[in-house]
Structure formats: structure tokens, C-alpha cells
Nucleic acid binder design. Structure first.
Length: 229
DNA sequence: AAGCGGTCCAACCGCTCGCTG
DNA sequence: GCAGCGAGCGGTTGGACCGCT
């Protein structure tokens, strides 16, 4: 049995949003808050799919969005984050206050890719274009658990033999409070984690007390400090 | 001015994940 | 354990816009 559609497609508008639709959506969310996107269109009097409403709100109507050009700092931060996280646009967006995953994804594909290529850097692997790819590195979270292996380089290279396996690497995750707006490169050291500068391999700042890149020596990678709020 | 090709970005689509019964 | 559902994510697309000829 197939999944039921997320909305009655026959009775929904598609394409560009009108000013009136925007106003209705904003007014409804201001009055009732976000949540239950499936029922929102009907409640708000919109002939739109819930997904479409959610996307419109998140990518365009949210009051905390920062519109306009990306700064050089943001560019470099995106490149660093992409080299660490790959195409995890929502995670990258979580580190750029006021920016959306869609915006960053578009910006990456239109500007940064080209920028890296012009520097002679492969935008997928973040390595010099004429450099031979290294043997792939596989990280295993649990002994013998094939499903939990991940490629350290996301997908740039196919699995090759011999596989280099880091023994019993325990990437224990810890929960930190929701992200608060702060200077981009200021160290935000969590209780047992690592400051963001170090997690990106950026130069240490005076306040930094981290001992190792990615917090591997401490056994902690504060994933939530990278994950979106 | 018209035609064309390239660029950009808003929006859609399909899939996965997590939750619930 | 399984199925259904809603939410969220990443890839892709369509069309508006712009510069060049």
C-alpha cells in the first residue's frame, strides 16, 4: 500500500507565493506558532501543501533571516564546515545564524564551488584537483557493525582495500543547550567538548583550552554544537 | 530591439528518520 | 516488530533575470 499524499494535490496551489499568501502564513504563525504543518494550510486558509508552507516560512518568511550577500568570513566558514560535514546543509546552516540550508546549498553550488575550482581545489574532496585520492578511511562506531561504518570523506572515493579502520573510535555525543547567536569564530567550548575554532582546525584563540582537534583526545565530539539549533 | 545562453534562487520532489499505536 | 504518519533533509528543476552578441 502506498503512502497517502501529504496533502490534496488537486486542491493546492503551486509555484511562486503571492503577497497575500505570505501575509496569511506569517499572520497564522505569529498567532499560533510553528508546528503541525500538515494541518496548518487549512487552518490558515491557504491552498498550499504543508510542506510548501514550511519551506516558505523557513527559507523566506522567518523574521530572523539574514538576507543579502554572504561575507568572506561566511564563505570561509562554509568551506570549512563543508570539508567536515559534506553536504549536510542543515548542519552547516545551524552554524550560520540567519542563513538557511537552502540558501547555503544554492550559494555553494553557484559561488563557492566555482571559487574552489578557481583555486584548484576539488569542491567535493577539498583537496588539490591534481592530487591523487588517498586510500579511503573507514570509521567504525562499533566492532563488527557494518551498518555503522562511515566514510570519513563522505562519498568522494569508493571503498578500497586495504581499509584503514580506526579501532573502537567512540564518538560519544553530548547534548548542549540550543545554539545562541555569537561571534562566528569565538570559542564556544562546551562542558566536555571542544571549541568551535578547534573543531574546524582554525588557529587557537587565547581563550581556547582545547587539547586536540575534534576533541578526539577527550573522547567527545560535541555534535550539538555543530548541529542546527 | 531581439535572440540566446548562462546564472541564480525559490520551490518542488522523493526519500529517510523518528515517533506512535 | 510492524505499519502509518508527520517532519525534515538533500537533490533537482523551472523560470526570472541579466549580460552579451
Amino acid at each position: 500500500m502506498g503512502r497517502s499524499p501529504c496533502c490534496e494535490k488537486a486542491h493546492t496551489n503551486k509555484g511562486a507565493w503571492t503577497k497575500e499568501e505570505d501575509d496569511r502564513l506569517v499572520a497564522y504563525i505569529r498567532a499560533h506558532g510553528e508546528g503541525c504543518w500538515r494541518s496548518l494550510p487549512k487552518a490558515a486558509g491557504l491552498l498550499r501543501c504543508g510542506k510548501s508552507c514550511r519551506l516558505r516560512w523557513i527559507n523566506y518568511l522567518r523574521p530572523d533571516l539574514k538576507r543579502g550577500n554572504f561575507t568572506d568570513d561566511e564563505d570561509e566558514l562554509i568551506i570549512k564546515l563543508h570539508s567536515l560535514l559534506g553536504n549536510k546543509w542543515s548542519l552547516i546552516a545551524g552554524r550560520l545564524p540567519g542563513r538557511t540550508d537552502n540558501e547555503i546549498k544554492n550559494y555553494w553550488n553557484t559561488h563557492i564551488r566555482r571559487k574552489l575550482l578557481s583555486r584548484g581545489v576539488d569542491p567535493v574532496t577539498h583537496r588539490p584537483i591534481n592530487e591523487q585520492p588517498p586510500a579511503n578511511i573507514t570509521i567504525s562506531f562499533e566492532k563488527g557493525d557494518e551498518d555503522h561504518k562511515i566514510s570519513a570523506l563522505e562519498k568522494p572515493f569508493k571503498l578500497q582495500e586495504p581499509q584503514f579502520k580506526i579501532p573502537d573510535l567512540n564518538l560519544e555525543l553530548c547534548i548542549s543547550p540550543p545554539f545562541q547567536e555569537e561571534p562566528l569564530i569565538k570559542p564556544v567550548k562546551s562542558e566536555a567538548g571542544v571549541c568551535f575554532s578547534c573543531s574546524l582546525g582554525l588557529p587557537k584563540s587565547p581563550e581556547c583550552k582545547c587539547s586536540n582537534f575534534l576533541g578526539l583526545s577527550s573522547g567527545f565530539l560535541d555534535f550539538r554544537s555543530v548541529e542546527m539549533k
